[in-house]
Amino acid sequence: MPNSSLFNAFFTILKKAGLPRVPIHSLRHTHTVILLEAGVDLKYVQERLGHKSIQITATFLRKLNRTQCLNMKCS
C-alpha cells in the first residue's frame, strides 16, 4: 500500500470516528504509553520499538512521567 493511501485511510478513519486529525506517528507514541502504563518491562518496550539503546526508551519514559506529573499538577 503506498504511503499516501495509508495516510488517507488513517485520516478517513479519524474523521468518521469524530476524532481530531493527528499525525500517524502518534499511534507509535500511544502504543508506547499503553505498554509503559501497563507496567511492561522497559527492555521489552525497547525491543518492540526497535531502539538500539535502552537509554532512548528511558528518555521517553522520563518525558511521559513529566507530562503525567504536569497533568496531575503534582509537585
Rank of each mutant, 00 (worst) to 15 (best):
Q68S: 08
T67R: 13
K43N: 06
H51D: 03
R62G: 02
L64N: 05
R48K: 08
L27Q: 06
L64C: 00
K43E: 08
K73V: 06
G18P: 05
Q68P: 02
Q68Y: 10
E47G: 09
T30N: 02
S4M: 06
H25W: 07
Y44K: 01
H25Y: 15
H29C: 07
T30D: 02
H51P: 03
L49S: 00
A9H: 11
I13L: 09
L49Q: 04
F7H: 12
Q68V: 09
N65M: 11
Q46V: 00
R21H: 15
L27V: 10
T59R: 11
G50I: 01
E47Y: 04
Q68K: 14
L42T: 02
N8E: 14
Q55K: 12
C69D: 12
R66M: 08
C69V: 11
A38K: 14
L42G: 01
K43P: 01
V40F: 02
S75L: 10
N3T: 14
K52E: 08
C69E: 14
K63F: 10
F60N: 00
N65R: 14
H51S: 00
L70E: 15
H25M: 08
N8H: 12
K15R: 11
R62F: 09
S4F: 09
M72R: 15
L35C: 04
G39V: 07
H31T: 08
M1G: 12
T32A: 14
V40Y: 00
V33H: 00
C74G: 11
K16L: 09
E37R: 09
S53D: 13
H25K: 15
A17V: 09
K63H: 15
T57W: 01
T32M: 06
V40R: 02
M72L: 15
L35R: 01
A17N: 11
V22I: 13
T59C: 07
V33E: 04
Q55A: 13
R28W: 04
L36R: 04
T67A: 14
Q55D: 13
S4T: 10
G39Y: 03
T32C: 09
K63W: 10
I13H: 06
R28Q: 09
I54P: 00
V22L: 08
E47D: 11
V33G: 00
A58H: 04
K73L: 10
L49Y: 00
H51L: 03
R28N: 01
L70C: 05
V45S: 01
A58E: 08
S75F: 07
V22K: 12
S5K: 11
K43G: 05
Y44G: 03
L6D: 05
K15L: 06
H51R: 00
A17L: 13
Y44T: 10
A9I: 07
K73S: 15
R21F: 13
A17S: 15
I54K: 02
L70P: 00
L42N: 02
C69M: 10
A38E: 13
I13G: 06
H25D: 10
V22G: 02
L70H: 06
H31L: 05
T32P: 00
N65W: 04
R28F: 07
S4A: 11
F7L: 15
A58D: 06
